[in-house]
């Protein structure tokens, strides 16, 4: 009833060892809890119905206690708790210590969380020459340990891919580390799980677990600079982006004049499946809607509140300009 593994963020649909260990532990404790609940409520209801007051009830015997019983129901729960505590502590340590660190040859991804998007920086011992930084979409090789370093640019956030691993908070001025692994190729939903302000509900991203070959291909693509568009409309968009509309002031498109990291990296934005941190499918329509009125899609976002094209009526984007920008962004494959 509650276990709905087909839902995208279900903790019952486990894809990797970390989430699996957490689910196993959950089932184990759930069994103990249900066991205790059934016994306690059964005795409670039995007592209530068995000993209901009858009309001419005399005072019952004034029993003040029983030391043996007290000892028994102190020790029995303690024993049950020992059986909960042991697997708990084992799992805590297992999940804390990476089985294969970066130094031992496994991928490391540094996550930077910001209100309200994500940056991912890759350090892959198998691709030592590739420098990859991307936003709002994470790709990992299947069946491999991935080490995660968590940093925050502003407030608290939390890194959570329910199918793959339980969450770890992202705390400014701290670097938290964890490891994840997916044993299944596919798409996984991830969402910020610590309240981080007005658009907290809209701070998601997607994780794709690919074969090692696909992952290497993707790494190569992400490491390349953006190509210059051939189509005139897209070229017009590039001009607006790097010119009077000042998109470059906040975004990065590698190989161009846009080098800022205030907003998400857009070098390969067209290669991603989602827009605006996992909340819109990456389609032409959605991109247009986003550029028309970002505030209505993600309230409070910096672009809507600070970019002059949205704050200054005279600099507002008109339809042809939006079309040009959409065309340009769609070439950033």
């Amino acid at each position: 009833m509650g276990c709905t593994p087909d839902h995208p963020q279900s903790t019952f649909n486990v894809a990797g060892p970390v989430a699996e260990s957490q689910l196993t532990l959950f089932y184990w404790i759930l069994a103990a809890a249900v066991f205790v609940f059934v016994i306690v409520t059964a005795i409670l209801f039995w007592a209530v119905f068995r000993y209901r007051r009858k009309v001419d009830d005399k005072d019952p015997e004034q029993i003040h206690g029983n030391t043996k019983l007290e000892i028994a129901w102190t020790i029995l729960p303690a024993i049950i708790l020992v059986f909960v505590a042991i697997p708990t502590v084992i799992t805590i340590f297992d999940n804390a210590n990476s089985p294969c660190t970066y130094e031992e040859g496994c991928l490391e991804v540094t996550v930077e969380a910001a209100q309200w998007f994500w940056n991912f920086t890759y350090k892959d011992p198998s691709n030592p020459d590739l420098e990859v930084m991307t936003s709002n979409e994470m790709r990992i090789p299947v069946d491999e340990v991935v080490n995660i370093k968590l940093t925050s640019r502003d407030v608290l956030h939390s890194f959570w891919i329910p199918n793959i691993a339980g969450k770890l908070d992202i705390v400014p001025n701290h670097v938290n580390t964890m490891w994840i692994q997916s044993d299944i190729e596919g798409e996984f939903y991830a969402q910020c799980a610590e309240f981080c302000g007005i658009a907290h509900a809209l701070m998601s991203f997607r994780v794709y677990a690919d074969s090692r070959e696909e992952f290497n291909e993707w790494m190569k693509l992400q490491a390349t600079e953006a190509s210059i568009p051939a189509e005139p409309l897209a070229l017009e968009g590039k001009k607006l982006f790097e010119g009077e509309k000042q998109c470059y002031a906040c975004h990065k498109v590698m190989g161009t004049k846009a080098r800022s990291n205030v907003g998400p990296d857009l070098t390969h934005v067209a290669s991603r499946t989602q827009l605006a941190a996992g909340i819109l499918d990456n389609t032409q329509d959605n991109l247009r809607k986003w550029l028309e009125d970002p505030e209505s899609i993600k309230p409070g976002n910096k672009m809507a509140r600070q970019a002059t094209v949205y704050t200054d009526e005279t600099k507002k984007l008109n339809d042809p300009e939006i079309s040009a920008l959409v065309a340009y962004l769609q070439t950033l494959k």
Partner: peptide
């Protein structure tokens, strides 16, 4: 009992803040 369930820190990583 649900409180005891989250006392298991490893399992709580899935439940915390949900």
């Amino acid at each position: 009992l649900s409180g005891t369930m989250h006392s298991s820190a490893a399992s709580d990583a899935q439940q915390q803040d949900t």
